[in-house]
């Protein structure tokens, strides 16, 4: 692992993140904006599937998830920049490991939704109720999203003791 981290620090991306004082704060701001957009668009769709929002056909609301996909890409890019700038903070951090687990669970949950439920959900009318199985997936999606946020916030408090980075 140490050799891999040493290699990361030789990359141009790592130099870019560490050599300019404004890169880290701007990336953090973008990461938070992206997280908010992702949580809002996915959350709104999940609330509709759960039945808390009525009057909009889930199919019509689904189009906003494109914004969520863009937000996820921005999150991933800025996340890679953080890792390239302060690798030890992430690779030796239990909160980061758990965050990755939640991200994988989110992805698997989304895949399950599109595989098993999406066709039926897309056909629902504005006032129709989603099936129980789709509601379970939507509820799990919200739980995993909160898990990602919780672990992301806890990250700095689980830094390895030898780390003295940004």
């Amino acid at each position: 692992m140490d050799a891999f981290i040493d290699w990361i620090y030789t990359t141009r991306l790592s130099s870019f993140v560490n050599d300019y004082r404004w890169v880290w704060p701007i990336c953090e701001s973008l990461h938070f904006c992206a997280l908010t957009v992702l949580a809002g668009t996915v959350g709104l769709f999940d609330l509709r599937v759960l039945g808390l929002v009525k009057g909009i056909a889930p199919g019509a609301l689904h189009a906003t998830l494109r914004w969520g996909v863009v937000a996820f890409v921005v999150s991933a890019i800025t996340g890679v920049m953080f890792i390239s700038g302060a690798s030890e903070q992430y690779f030796y951090n239990d909160a980061f490991r758990l965050k990755v687990v939640f991200l994988v669970l989110m992805g698997a949950n989304a895949a399950l939704f599109y595989w098993r439920e999406f066709a039926g959900i897309r056909a629902l009318g504005p006032r129709d109720d989603a099936p129980r199985s789709a509601k379970l997936i939507a509820a799990a999606s919200l739980v995993f999203l909160v898990g990602v946020m919780l672990c992301g916030r806890m990250l700095t408090f689980f830094r390895p003791p030898f780390f003295h980075g940004p």
């Binding site: 908010t36 809002g40 959350g43 709104l44 808390l52 906003t64 914004w67 504005p126």
Partner: peptide, 29 residues
């Protein structure tokens, strides 16, 4: 932040992507 700004942004994105607004219930959001 995710609950307030996130859902507000979700609503904004939904509204900006449409030409017509259906009648829907806002109270819970």
């Amino acid at each position: 932040l995710a609950m307030l700004a996130g859902l507000n942004i979700g609503l904004d994105a939904w509204l900006l992507g449409r030409r017509k607004l259906p009648p829907f219930e806002l109270a819970n959001i």
